[in-house]
Design a protein around this nucleic acid. Structure first.
Lengths: 343, 343
DNA sequence: CGACCAATTGACAGCGTTGTCAGTCAGCCG
DNA sequence: CGGCTGACTGACAACGCTGTCAATTGGTCG
């Protein structure tokens, strides 16, 4: 009554185990009639190949690792990002018959490096997807490069022709958000930046500047506050901005968490939203829908990005015919109640 | 330059591979001097056992599966729950040298069952942790029971002496929240229930009733609205409750998402919170901190629960000396701005 | 001193696949 | 009709480790 093995199938089908192996792995050069005999034996016995045996013999692990900034230790605890990445990665893994290992990590922690090395040693993954902002950190990518494990950067923030990556249009979409705000009549549009070490954040800021420029609004340093992506830094930024003689009529924050901080502060000061102040965020976290007023923001196609990263990773075993360059999947504006015309 | 194998270590250390295996697996009956020779050979070669080979030979997979309601398809998209479960499970896995596979699933989908069977066939996990509300569904648990794979239910909602599980005090903590509201002077305390098929939700409602009764407040059916855990159902519930001749002065929702709906509705009707209406939620999702006013809620120790479930699962290979009964890890009240005294 | 026991070690047979390579077989060409 | 080719199939050796069981060692006890 123990699990049937490839031998059982071979016996039942009256062929060799190698032929069964061929059928199971969809290899060519098996006569159709043979194939269907084997298939029927397989389903009769409800045979499933033993993964460990297969991995051992084929020198692969069938494992894909997804690495992302641990939301439990991040200043902007955006679990929704992690979950969306997971969703897409899982989807692609399912299709490719791989299993997904998640590896949230806190890059501020000294032990990231050894943890990654141990992960590699233990699991020998077939491929790795590294999400922003970690995708831009050598500490994170080096262990994989050293071990010769193929990896794809998710949203690396700048193109590279040497390697494949999947990104989104941070800059362009931020420009678009800025133009949208301008189109509502806003001229004093502030920007709350996050950690500008993170490329995505830097790009968002550049997009903001571009957007202003396109609309003929001159950029003013005083309207840009740098935060650290946290709610509290959103609060602090709003406090400074709203204390100005002539406060901005719109505030665009580089993430939803800071936008929430801005919103709370504005409301505590008695401002009515959006009539007295428009607020926009970035990420479309779950939060955004539930704030009051609900938050206008930007949605990154994280699931799709992760999915396409994983499938690209797995599609080509050959080093050199893996695609190069960056695949860009555009983000979209999500207009909600927190933005409105200048009154 | 290829990976060193156990044979290389054995040669270098001048012992048999079996002895190396003993050292690697921390087995007893190895002379200290031998052990350290082997250890030095291991570190010299930077040897890591090949997981697949080990799994194949030992008939184990070293894999633990975590199953939970997929937040991307749930009516209450609470990613924070998933992430916290993952965090705890990962912690325990790391300690036990296992890898974690996540399996978010949408129980409303017909294909859950086959998906689980396929998961089992593919991965043969050493153990499985099933989080509420899935932990109470036979559709989910049966495949594992059938396959003889040990599993632990997380927050099963009722004790069972036959099997081990990890839960929390839904009922008692809900009673406590109710008492807390009463202590602020509230007498008309409404309850917005979720899907009462879910045991946790049912328990929360019972706790609410108990709390009322302890405070000498009589239970009124009309103050209980059943929702479906979604934001929208929170909105609907608030609409009905606030339309009463004598609306409640406090509303306790069975999750944060519905509480957010209640809050938004109350604010749109121009109520000041908490002076005119106190609102409490359940879950302490990330959302709760960022709402304005921030939400008083209940925090379940999900990470700890998952961690203890995984370690219990792995600690005892012997069927019969695995612990029985339910380990209860208490939830705690998180008091924020959305609740206050009756004015 | 020899028997005896527990601690320690090793030889070897799997574990269930895949990769390699050597057939076998049918059809086609000259 | 013999040889050749390409499609198909199978035998068998890995893959790197653990489990089993026998052998060896070192010490203790009578």
């Amino acid at each position: 009554m123990s699990k049937p093995t490839i031998d059982d199938v071979a016996n039942l089908a009256g062929v060799s185990i190698k032929t069964v192996s061929r059928v199971v792995n969809n290899e060519p050069n098996v006569r159709d009639s043979t194939r269907s005999q084997v298939e029927s034996a397989i389903s009769q016995l409800n045979y499933r190949p033993n993964i460990s045996a297969r991995n051992l013999a084929s020198h692969r692990s069938n494992l894909v690792v997804l690495i992302y900034d641990d939301p439990s230790t991040s200043t902007s605890p955006n679990e929704s990002i992690a979950v969306r990445l997971q969703h897409g990665a899982l989807q692609a893994c399912r299709q490719a018959n791989r299993e997904l290992l998640i590896h949230p990590c806190n890059y501020r922690d000294k032990s990231v490096r050894p943890a990654l090395r141990s992960l590699i040693a233990r699991t020998r993954p077939d491929g790795v997807v590294i999400a922003a902002p970690l995708s831009n950190m050598a500490t994170i990518t080096k262990p994989f490069a050293d071990a010769g494990i193929p990896f794809v950067r998710l949203s690396p923030g700048r193109k590279s022709t040497a390697e494949f990556s999947v990104g989104t249009n941070d800059r362009a979409i931020s420009a678009e958000m800025t133009r949208y705000l301008a189109s509502l009549g806003h001229r004093d549009i502030a920007f709350v930046s996050g950690n500008e070490q993170e490329r995505a954040v830097a790009n968002r800021k550049i997009g903001y500047q571009e957007g202003l420029s396109v609309c003929g609004i001159s950029y003013r340093d005083s309207l840009v506050i740098s935060g650290d992506s946290s709610f509290e830094s959103g609060v602090a930024a709003a406090e400074r901005l709203l204390a100005r003689k002539k406060p901005p009529t719109a505030i665009f924050a580089a993430n939803d968490c800071m936008a929430a901080g801005v919103m709370q502060t504005a409301q505590k000061k008695g401002l009515r939203l959006p009539s007295q102040l428009s607020i926009a965020g970035f990420d479309d976290s779950t939060l955004a829908k539930y704030l009051n007023p609900s938050l206008t923001t930007i949605q990154q196609p994280l699931a799709k990005m992760a999915e396409s990263a994983v499938s690209a990773l797995l599609s080509n075993r050959d080093e050199h015919d893996r695609p190069k360059g960056m695949t860009v999947i555009p983000s979209v504006l999500v207009l909600r109640e927190s933005t409105g015309p200048v009154l």
